[in-house]
Design a protein around this nucleic acid. Sequence first.
DNA 1: TAGATACTTTCTTCACTGAAACAAGTATCT
DNA 2: AGATACTTGTTTCAGTGAAGAAAGTATCTA
Lengths: 419, 419
Amino acid sequence: MDNIRRGNKQLIKELNRAILINTILNYGPVSRTRISEITDLGLSTVSNIVADLIKKELIYETGEEESSGGRRAILLEFNCNDRFVLGIKIGLDGIIIGLVNMKSKILDQHFIPSPVKSNEEIVLEVLIRAIRDLISKNHIKAEKILGCGIGVSGLVNQKEGTLVFSKILGWKQIRFKELLEKEFDFPIFVDKDVNVLTLTEKRFGVGKKINNFICITIGKGVGAGIVIKGDIYHGSYGGAGDFGHIIIDKDGPLCYCGKRGCLETFSSDQFIINKIKEALSNQQDTIIKDFLKKKEDLNSITVDTVLEAAQKGDVISKNIFQEVGKSLAIGIVSLVSLFDPELIVLGGEGVKAGELIFPTMRKVIRDNFPFKKEIKIVPLQPGEEGWIIGAAELVLSEVFKTPIFKSKGKVAIKSAFHW
Amino acid sequence: MDNIRRGNKQLIKELNRAILINTILNYGPVSRTRISEITDLGLSTVSNIVADLIKKELIYETGEEESSGGRRAILLEFNCNDRFVLGIKIGLDGIIIGLVNMKSKILDQHFIPSPVKSNEEIVLEVLIRAIRDLISKNHIKAEKILGCGIGVSGLVNQKEGTLVFSKILGWKQIRFKELLEKEFDFPIFVDKDVNVLTLTEKRFGVGKKINNFICITIGKGVGAGIVIKGDIYHGSYGGAGDFGHIIIDKDGPLCYCGKRGCLETFSSDQFIINKIKEALSNQQDTIIKDFLKKKEDLNSITVDTVLEAAQKGDVISKNIFQEVGKSLAIGIVSLVSLFDPELIVLGGEGVKAGELIFPTMRKVIRDNFPFKKEIKIVPLQPGEEGWIIGAAELVLSEVFKTPIFKSKGKVAIKSAFHW
DNA sequence: TAGATACTTTCTTCACTGAAACAAGTATCT
DNA sequence: AGATACTTGTTTCAGTGAAGAAAGTATCTA
């Protein structure tokens, strides 16, 4: 209540423009009359606002509809290629950068191999060059870029736009926002990679119309993006959704995070590798042996090695994935108890092993909720687009944010509703 | 965005009235000029709205302030005793019912001993009589009652206003809303007891200015009320916050809920009783023996018995409480990993044993987060007011809800901003 | 040409706004 | 004590500009 703007003509104006633009985004191409019907705004009001928005080049007329017995309707469309957004995903393998239009369509994307194990300066240098290259290659004026969103693995301070710490990347304290904003004239937004992927699912994917859901990523680590009442939930200090570090075994083994019995100690890539190494050193019968050139070459084993073995029918390997499935299920059971979500989405590298993990996982979940009707669990198609679109969405969601709330402090980005 | 009202004069009007009433509620008694400063509304606007609200008897002038060098300010106050709300808490021991004014002050309250193990009809009958008695005893016209909030232990369907199932009360499928609304002309709101208590803390207690926090109740069961972005989070099906049934030991003992290793199997009243019985049957040395008249009278042991023993220094009993503390800590660690809240509040019967439980709990939490700065954990004073105020708040929060959102379906309650 | 549908123009309404007027006090000087 | 200046709080009133209503225009079909 306290953070709501007072009512005056300015608010009405912005609000109705927001409603109108959103209607065109969702229903477009669409006529004035139809907009009036959908939004319940007066026809003259719609006409006036439309005229204003056309003048400002935010929308444009794009032909006529078939007649339905009278004058043909003039269709309106959002001018989504007038300005652009950059979406960046920083991963262990490298950086993916994409140019995205205002309707979240990827226009161009590039991959820059990893500058991992680098320090702040080098990472930033690579990013700056990548951004400049992308902009110039697409012949876009820099002032047409609305902003840049970055998704990165680790603990992120959203407000400061810094990566506080990332175990996987081996980085800490990288001031993306501050340093990139020095270089460019558009705002930078940073968030955890899981949250970025979750955002994509919320806006365009399986979570589109769902208010409360959780998107779990399985891979090097285990994380979760939490959507509550339609928004990503970050927690008070940005650390929410640390699904990999809930405790599923109170007297379990020590985790690198300092706790005991974390889910991640039973389900991450490292767990799989450790398990298979253990099996090998116990002389257990697994075809992984045949994969190794030298017998001692244990360090060359990756999750993909084990996955391949399991897919070829190796029992030991299959069992390991099943065990991962069981542990994930235990974690999900707790998630469901706490969040009671409508949907759980599974993403990340780990879905590649889905066939091996999910059946056990689903079974354990079912067994644990005998009185509850089946919980909707949907695996995601792997791919890079999700990350880019989500990162770009960090910017777009700000641009198209409902103009009802007071903006405290200096405004990071100008809302589309008073361009 | 889709659920936001379109901008027009009506919205401006309601919005500014809402802002003004809220300002008076928060800062009152307060002058027109001060309201203008706080809200940023024009002075003439404030005067106009005030005149309107005085006419509608929502606010009134209540004397003058000391002069600060000029004309004395006329103070305005919210007319909080013009209408009333009922708050009911249904517990194992009985029903507490309270008459609450619009500023959440309890004006009268009564206790009706338990109709537990009764069927739907009897429970409803008792409630109806209790409500009638309270209203007539206080000489209040029924039309002055805005609504009635009910807090009850168990799984609640908020929308339907039903208790779906309660293990503790042994009830299922009680249609509070439907049946009580047949009897009375005001709307009924039902929520889980934990959420009701949490609501009180959010509005008036330690959580007042905190956006994200969790309120844990310890007692017959273990539950949690979750506050996210200032609102209680219910989950998609009303089951969120089932903290007692997160899994802290994946291979732990079977819980009555059908899962294995639930927190509640390590921390509820039943756990404490079972543990002490076990100790007694193992002939361990505890002064509880002396408490029992007959040696075999094991079933007379309650948590209070064990608590008394522990407070008298009984080592076995003390250890049990410490074990509870440890298990709760493990659960809280997972909560923190998932929610990253600013604050954790501890309430419920269990706080009586706080001295025995909390030190261990805090230590285990600290040990588990070596890299994290201390987490704020605040125990609550036990008492009944919290339940009543929270239950009443279920109604008041609807009455004073920000008038920005579209109300879908038929409106449950008329907002104060267009009385 | 009648009827339907889409859009535009013109005019009205009404809640906020800001400036000025008014009201009622304090401070200070004679 | 009375006059004057200043301060603070409230009301009045003309003005603004957004939505909205109604009437008019444009364009299509049958």
